[in-house]
Amino acid sequence: MSIADRLQALGITLPAVATPAASYLPYMRTGNLVFLSGHIAKKDGQVWVGQLGKTMGTAEGQQAARAVAIDLLGTLNAAAGGLDKVVRIVKVMSLVNSTPEFTEQHLVTNGCSELLAEVFGEAGRHARSAFGVAQIPLGSCVEIELIAEVQ
């Protein structure tokens, strides 16, 4: 099954690359690696505001991380010239806006990681870091960046 077929089966339409909110580029390619800048969670076109352990639970955080993954796929599609040119997802770094007591950042980040594996198969499995942070720009609940190897 092609990547386009997998996306269609999952009901995913790739978004356009978002305009950066500050002084940075949405992605940078060097050699066969593409580095995607952090993407914040959005719901219904708006920043998905929340703090895990206070206003949100793990399951909702996973949904937010999955939404970020879809936005990352849109940017990666543009950066690579098509998702079929992605050799593998190398690394994901996730920042989870959470209370000091919340300890399930890794489970929240699974929302992103599991979607990448669904889309790319074995090539979607990656190295990963997940951190709890005191705040994310605009009050977003999750921010994720990604590194991919491309043809």
Rank of each mutant, 00 (worst) to 15 (best):
M1H: 11
I3F: 02
A9D: 06
L10F: 15
A16E: 09
A16W: 08
V17H: 05
A21D: 12
S23F: 12
S23Y: 04
L25K: 12
L25Y: 07
P26G: 11
L36W: 02
S37W: 04
S37P: 11
I40P: 01
K43Y: 11
D44S: 15
G57Y: 08
G57M: 08
T58W: 02
T58P: 02
E60Y: 04
A64N: 06
A64Y: 05
R66H: 06
I70L: 00
I70P: 00
I70K: 00
L76G: 00
A78V: 07
G82S: 00
G82L: 12
I89D: 06
I89C: 03
I89W: 04
V92L: 14
M93Q: 15
L95W: 14
T99K: 01
E101V: 05
E101R: 06
E104P: 00
E104M: 13
H106S: 11
G111K: 10
E114L: 10
E114H: 08
L115C: 00
E118K: 13
G121L: 02
R125N: 10
H126F: 12
A127D: 02
A127M: 14
R128K: 09
R128A: 11
R128M: 11
S129I: 14
S129V: 14
A134P: 06
Q135D: 08
Q135W: 06
P137W: 09
L138E: 11
L138S: 07
G139Q: 03
S140G: 14
I144M: 01
